[in-house]
Design a protein around this nucleic acid. Sequence first.
DNA 1: CTGAAAGCGCTTACAG
DNA 2: CTGAAAGCGCTTACAG
Lengths: 352, 352
Amino acid sequence: MTRQRVTIREVAEAAGVSTQTVSRVLNNRPDVAPETFDRVQQIIAEVGYSPNMLARGLTQGRSHVLGVVAFGVEYFGPTRVLTGIESQAAEMGYSITLNLIHRPETDDVNGVLEGLVSRQVDGVLWAIPQVGRNLDWWPERAKRLPTPVVLVGGMAGQESLPSVGIDNRTIGRLAAEHLLAGGARRVGLITGPSRWWEAREREAGWRETLAQSGLDGVTGPVVEGDWSATSGEAGLHQLLAASPDIDAVFASNDQMALGVLHAAHALGLRVPEDLSVVGVDDIAEGKHFWPPLTTVHQPLIDAGIQAVTGIDEDIRRLAQRRRPAEPRAPWTMRLQPRLIVRESSRPPRQAI
Amino acid sequence: MTRQRVTIREVAEAAGVSTQTVSRVLNNRPDVAPETFDRVQQIIAEVGYSPNMLARGLTQGRSHVLGVVAFGVEYFGPTRVLTGIESQAAEMGYSITLNLIHRPETDDVNGVLEGLVSRQVDGVLWAIPQVGRNLDWWPERAKRLPTPVVLVGGMAGQESLPSVGIDNRTIGRLAAEHLLAGGARRVGLITGPSRWWEAREREAGWRETLAQSGLDGVTGPVVEGDWSATSGEAGLHQLLAASPDIDAVFASNDQMALGVLHAAHALGLRVPEDLSVVGVDDIAEGKHFWPPLTTVHQPLIDAGIQAVTGIDEDIRRLAQRRRPAEPRAPWTMRLQPRLIVRESSRPPRQAI
DNA sequence: CTGAAAGCGCTTACAG
DNA sequence: CTGAAAGCGCTTACAG
């Protein structure tokens, strides 16, 4: 931990050139004599020089850092998004600085934005779910930020800001269609917290699809969980209390679906014979639940990748146009979920 | 996205003072007249000034950034460690820059170190598991780094580098003791990959404890998994093939334990009556497995917190002593795991 | 193809 | 208590 950091100046002296020639080599500029280029590069390797990105950032006015603000990292979704962001960022030459928010609705977020601006990040990736009105102020706030912002994750409803999200309504639709195809006549729902936009969208997709089926009474009771397995477990009890004849349950995530499976076992209900169960997320464990869980997969890694690709484009545009810089128009990318059929749900019946 | 960034100079002009007076206010120096202080601070608020950390870092020679290198973030362990690191870092005024490594044994890691040095991080938190010989070169490499390094996570064996880890041997011991107390007479093991130091330590603790029991034949067969539930499922089959009379299984993580539960159901084995199962990690879902999983909890969030606290201390020491800077002696912190008894294992028998 | 000068936005001694 | 000067390590025009 004791090595003295070597600067461009020492490299220049050792090579017998000026510092900006070294700088040219560092940045792979074409206008350097081949011999000079090689000599400098050799010295760089010899002395183990590596450029000071702080200094570079200061002169260039960009840090090559992306600020990522994410909702925890203990949940499946955020983790996937972050994985996509990190790998794509590395790919494109960005570092990321990570801030974790644990209560998406109430945590003060101005402080972290300040911090990111202070650090001169080139762009901000906002991977916080829309809960209550926690995104209402965003368009206004974003305008006063000196960098592009991209919303990423579940929300795809923000028309006024660049965003990449998942089509949550289709998630509900896929689940309901699958349940109907398996012969369900009364489908209960365990939704996520109603303040969560994603939860409401999934519910809406579920509700629309069941209504369109024309089957009488197929839309069963709805109870609100908190995404935890424990709430899914309690949820099944409530559902059965409200409507003992339900033969299928859509849980708005896999954890709650796990709770449902657990409760069903405890009650002696057979899954899927007595009760079909569908979750959302496609967590790795789902394949090994008992029985293996049918679920709806969200392409969240992709969402992370697309968000980085998109913000990079925004950053470049901003850098090109001289002041006054104009961002490109808000863009939205909505990725499609995919049904994964396993054994917790009755298989589609053959058409007669 | 268009606001012009305001600098210390403009604040100084607006306040009618010099830039270093503004700097003093920014850094809460005592030697400023109260009226001046207030006036400057008001202007700062008015114009929405926030300091450029790149410039500050350049002059101060420290970035207030911690470089975190972690093994993925799709697994439970790394996620917990990262959560601890992030919260403690925020608490202590550090930002973190995150690099993810997906293959801990083979991925080239020099590039990410270079990158961190370039970014002038104040310290490096290395949260990569010890697999094969991937840590052998570390002590040598660390010496040539200009910043402190702390190893964090499972490994606590590195005497030559500061580190905070979990006592993995005790994990194996706790599991084996619990199984013995429940009356197990033949205990199989599904271990993690043998190239993983953590897996070997857990196995050693398990083996020692069983041997010390003096019970003949209590040490059952060992099969090697890859941490996945799928490998746990296959593992139980192999274990039974090798020794049909096993009445307990220790799985080296909860995912593999889940696979064991799955396979046991499929085979019609009752858990825990026919087979006691114990895992490691205490993942959130474990409570809702069927039956709820007995496991060994690792204080990984704490490990992350302690790592940040420790490296902060190292950073401060390094900053105080003028060159030649001497790091404090390598320190090691080993945190203790904790058994969580649920229903997948037979309860301890009463002493006669 | 290469270098002398200026500057990015701060902080650190050094005067007063 | 406050300011003029220098410098952190680079890059960006500008000359030649």
